[in-house]
């Protein structure tokens, strides 16, 4: 990734131009032509550096509420736990972390009932008594990308 790529990432990061030709607009700022901008973005997507281009919604405004959840599983059960957890669309992030508990995931639902359903199903599938739940009280920052 060279400086031009980084400049493109910075331009696209938080304020993607909502205009008929957004890549031309980005190019105009960076003294690049539209085709070069597009081909660099496509390349960065193919390389996996960019995983998504598009809107990020305010989940609360759309009636959704989220919680961070955690369980602790032994090493040989991690894969099974990941499979049990990851199959729900409502679970968008799941990470293996150092320490205990070691599996941390986010659950986003439009109502409490759906959240309960998913939590109970995971508990049953993994034969565990408890999933730790951390509901959000206040959001201080959501930036998605660092720097």
């Amino acid at each position: 990734m060279d400086e031009k790529d980084k400049e493109i990432l910075r331009m696209m990061q938080d304020d993607f131009p909502i205009v008929p030709k957004p890549y031309k607009r980005i190019g105009d700022f960076l003294w690049m032509d539209e085709v070069s901008v597009i081909s660099r973005v496509v390349k960065m997507m193919q390389d996996g550096k960019i995983r998504y281009v598009g809107p990020y919604f305010n989940s609360a405004k759309l009636g959704y509420s989220g919680q961070l959840m955690a369980i602790n599983v032994p090493e040989d059960k991690i894969e099974a736990a990941a499979n049990a957890i990851n199959k729900y669309d409502e679970i968008t992030h799941n990470y293996l972390r150092a320490g205990e508990p070691n599996i941390w995931f986010t659950l986003m639902t439009p109502n409490e009932k759906r959240a309960e359903e998913i939590i109970e199903a995971i508990k049953k599938e993994l034969a565990i008594d408890e999933i730790l739940s951390f509901k959000s009280k206040k959001t201080f920052k959501i930036k998605v990308n660092p720097a």
Binding site: L9, M12, D14, G48, P55, N145
Partner: peptide, 25 residues
Amino acid sequence: IAIIAKAKEDGIIRRVGIGVRPALT
């Protein structure tokens, strides 16, 4: 474009942009 701009203004869209993979950037 007008509908998207309005959704941004109303706060339904928090932002329009990219998601990167931190490990690769």
